[in-house]
Each structure stands twice: as structure tokens, then as C-alpha cells.
């Protein structure tokens, strides 16, 4: 099981381009095929990862690892997801003395990679909305309108106020208590 955790997060660490949110579908994919968490539990994990300082992908990995294998599981997941970047950064530092950002092959790779990452994040948003029973696919039947309104309020606050995501998560938690409790 620990070996499985290590391999899983090592693999994710290897391709974690474009900030942590793009990695959420990957983490979900692995977490589900290993039966580590349900998607709802994973959403809660991501909420906690977003509330805490540090990279969201690493935080989610640590949460999953802790849930599956306690402290040792958490340590293994943290190391596994950080290890590939460490190796790659060291290799680059070793071979590249002066970095040329323009016209290198890297910028070509990112030309195609970034739109895919964007699609992956949009997919993550749709997928999480479905898995949390907020929408049921493309149709408008059984839409949880209260949650949809919450999503748009939170999004508007992110876009138009300078409030940090941490505060928005806390406010939405408060709103949840007021509306549902």
C-alpha cells in the first residue's frame, strides 16, 4: 500500500504542470481506482488543502496519504509528489548555466500543453460539481440551485475583491451553516 502511494504521487509529481488545480482530476482518478476516498471526501480534502498554506496538489496528496496510511502515509505521499521536481530542478541547474526562455523547445511544448491544462481544470470543476450532486450532467434537471448561487457568489468575490481564498472558504462554510443547519 505504501509503495502504491509512493508510485501514484511520484507519477503525479512528474506531470504537475500549471499549478495544483490541474492535478485534481489526476488525483481523483488514482484515488478512485485505488478506492482510497470517495469524490465527496476528496472535495473536502481539497477544501482543506486550499485552506492551508502550501501547494494545493502537495496538500491534497498529504491528506490522501494521511487518510490511507496515517503519518507514514502522509510522509511518503509528500516525498513522492515533491521528488520528481527536485530531480528535474537539479538536472536543469546542472546542465543549464544560463536559461534562455525565448524560442526554446519548452515554449513550444507549453503552447500545446497550457490549453490542455486549462481544459483539465475546467473538467475538474464540472466533474466536482457532478460528483457533489450540484449538477447531474448537462441537463438542468435536479440542479442544486442554492449551491450554484454559492458558486457564483464565491467566484465573483474571487474575481472582483482582493479577498484571499482562505477567507472565501471560511465565509462559504459560515454560509453553509446558516443555510443548512
Amino acid at each position: 500500500m505504501y509503495w502504491n502511494l509512493f508510485l501514484t504521487f511520484f507519477r503525479i509529481g512528474l506531470v504537475s504542470f500549471g499549478g495544483g488545480y490541474a492535478m485534481l482530476p489526476l488525483i481523483e482518478y488514482e484515488v478512485k481506482s485505488n478506492n482510497w476516498l470517495t469524490t465527496q471526501q476528496l472535495t473536502d480534502a481539497i477544501a482543506i488543502a486550499g485552506m492551508s498554506p502550501g501547494p494545493i496538489a502537495t496538500n491534497s496528496a498529504v491528506f490522501v496519504g494521511y487518510n490511507v496510511g496515517g503519518i507514514l502515509g502522509a510522509i511518503i505521499s509528500a516525498i513522492a509528489i515533491s521528488f520528481p521536481s527536485l530531480i528535474i530542478v537539479v538536472l536543469i541547474a546542472l546542465f543549464v548555466s544560463k536559461v534562455k526562455s525565448n524560442h526554446s523547445i519548452i515554449s513550444y511544448v507549453f503552447y500545446g500543453l497550457r490549453p490542455v491544462i486549462t481544459a483539465l481544470i475546467v473538467y475538474a470543476a464540472i466533474n466536482f460539481a457532478i460528483q457533489n450532486n450540484i449538477i447531474q450532467g448537462i441537463s438542468l434537471i435536479d440542479v442544486d440551485w442554492i449551491s450554484i448561487v454559492f458558486v457564483f457568489i464565491a467566484l465573483a468575490m474571487l474575481l472582483f475583491t482582493k479577498l484571499s481564498p482562505v477567507i472565501i472558504i471560511f465565509l462559504s462554510g459560515l454560509a453553509g451553516i446558516i443555510v443548512y443547519y
Partner: peptide
């Protein structure tokens, strides 16, 4: 109940991340 509210915020955070990277991508 707090986490029911927070789930919406998480989805908003993900959409926000998509918009941010989408602008450069």
C-alpha cells in the same frame, strides 16, 4: 453543513484557477 457550503467555494476556486491559466494559455 459548513462543508456543504465550502464545496461550492472549492468549485469556484477551481473555475477561478481555470480562468487565470486560460488567460495565458
Amino acid at each position: 453543513t459548513a462543508f456543504i457550503g465550502i464545496r461550492s467555494a472549492v468549485i469556484a476556486l477551481i473555475i477561478f484557477a481555470a480562468l487565470k491559466i486560460g488567460k495565458t494559455a
